[in-house]
Amino acid sequence: MEQFCIQCDHVTLSYENQAVVSDLSFTVEEGDYLCIIGENGTGKSTLMKGLLGLKKPSSGSIVLGEGILRSQIGYVPQQTPVQRDFPASVWEVVLSGTQNSRGWRPGYGKREKELAGEKLELLGISELRSKSFRDLSGGQRQRVLLARSLCAAKKLILLDEPTAGLDPLVTEEFYHLLLDLNRSQHITVVMVSHAIQEALGHADHILYLSQDSYFYGTPLEYAASRAGQRFLKRCKGKGGRP
């Protein structure tokens, strides 16, 4: 049997006694590529905070698989305006992803530098190394943040709408890159996504959240389900986005 990476068991997440996500159960297997989709305000980002351990569930449990430490989960955030004009080189940003293995020691060692160089190579952005983060295009920035998350992660990366604000071509490329990493490096991918078509086209599993229920299954099962058909029809009218 495949080992699990994350197991959510009857999880409820709430803000000031208002449940945002309620009674959610699903399991992410090792090597899975899961996309979390749904309309605004259905708790996707809250669930992401729960998975990252930044928010405790008010009931139920979120368990990580054997051998996965909290600090070894990679995370690719939505870009904030602060970051867009942050004066830092690509190298400085990617290297900061290795911080979790340094503990209290200052500086970076040979091992961290090699790791960061390796990840730059893997994502094909070695030539951006000494460029400034704020001079990059949106797609390049996301690759850099992905490289940083890979420095922190051993097996699992979580992404929160990483392609928000990118054009469709770059979005497609980014999903493809993730699929590549997922297959060749055996990295489990869990992503909150706005790009429905790309999500259905690349993911192994879909978690769809709506106001009062949820659906978990493969993209095919999802597209055949009633909830899926209703949601997809609504998205089509708006250019593939909810």
Partner: peptide
């Protein structure tokens, strides 16, 4: 400041990431 230079950079650049990776 010099001793915690890298940590302060990480916290300044992206606090959520830093927190999520155990800082």
């Amino acid at each position: 400041y010099v001793f915690f230079y890298e940590k302060l950079f990480a916290v300044t650049f992206d606090e959520t990431f830093a927190k999520a990776t155990g800082m």
